[in-house]
């Protein structure tokens, strides 16, 4: 005779294990894999590498250039203040190692080895040699996840540096992206540099993004330009994270 008790006795273990697996997997999903990423960072810690001698030379040269740039920027700001223009200041940067790439190729992400405890918050801007890389979308204690600008879901307001034409940049996987311009006939040529515009709500203005490779004026809705992103995302091992002044959350963390 069929008895529900007997069935329960036979399948009790399997059922509870199945339920436990589901609960654990659900919690991983809800916490955005924070625990997993922390474990991953611990395991890969010995392999994260140190800058070699050549890199140190390059770093010294970069430092020198950065100092000159900083001097010029502050001079520029002083001049702008004289002209009564709004002043944009850049926050302090945290250097972070890249410890992982995206876990699925439909998303263009990377994982950094610094997190909450290093004052990295959601919305922080990630910059590498060459220009803008992306934006922090989630952070655990020691890791943080970056949505790259090459992700198809990321949108950035950009402007071309020569002719100051505005457009919206949309990622296209790899190191390519597409700009859609607002105007019908933008004055843009291959080779023009592209940087973030002052209208962007997520990124500070003036960060280099890439270079125009070709124009597609015949597109129906709006003219498009194909852009090669300037930061070599697949090769970089270290990035700088800026807590941007535009994200209110990060400001709270800088000045408690």
């Amino acid at each position: 005779m069929y008895s529900p008790y007997r069935w329960w006795d036979r399948h009790r273990l399997q059922l509870s294990l199945a339920v436990i697996s589901l609960i654990v997997a659900w919690s991983v999903r809800q916490t955005q894999g924070a625990g997993l990423l922390e474990v991953y960072r611990l395991i890969t810690l010995p392999f994260q590498g140190n800058p070699t001698q050549q890199e140190q030379l390059v770093n010294a040269r970069t430092w020198e250039l950065e100092q000159r740039l900083a001097a010029l920027e502050s001079q520029n700001q002083a001049l702008q203040a004289l002209l009564k223009q709004p002043v944009v200041t850049q926050g302090k940067g945290t250097v972070a190692p890249v410890i992982g790439r995206s876990a699925d190729h439909w998303w263009q992400q990377m994982t950094l080895g610094r997190g909450h405890l290093d004052a990295i918050r959601e919305g922080a801007i990630v910059v590498a040699p060459g220009g803008l890389v992306g934006r922090v979308v989630s952070a655990s204690d020691h890791t943080s996840r970056v949505l790259l600008i090459s992700d198809p879901t990321s949108r950035i307001g950009v402007t071309t540096s020569r002719s100051r034409r505005m457009g919206i940049l949309r990622g296209q996987a790899g190191d390519r992206a597409v700009i859609e311009f607002y105007e019908k006939d933008p004055d843009v040529r291959p080779g023009d540099a592209v940087s973030t515009s002052s209208l962007s709500s997520l990124f500070p203005p003036g960060l280099l993004v890439g270079r125009v490779e070709s124009m597609q004026l015949s597109k129906s809705a709006a003219p498009q330009a194909l852009v090669k992103l300037s930061a070599p995302v697949s090769d970089i091992n270290w990035v700088t994270v800026y807590l941007d002044a535009k994200t209110s959350k990060s400001m709270v963390s800088i000045n408690p």
Binding site: L22, A25, R29, G33, A103
Partner: peptide, 21 residues
């Protein structure tokens, strides 16, 4: 199917929750 759902949720946690793996 159960294994697929469990591992899919884990992968969601490691990328983005939407659309689900």
């Amino acid at each position: 199917a159960l294994a697929g759902i469990v591992l899919g949720l884990i992968q969601d946690g490691m990328t983005a929750p939407y659309p689900s793996h």
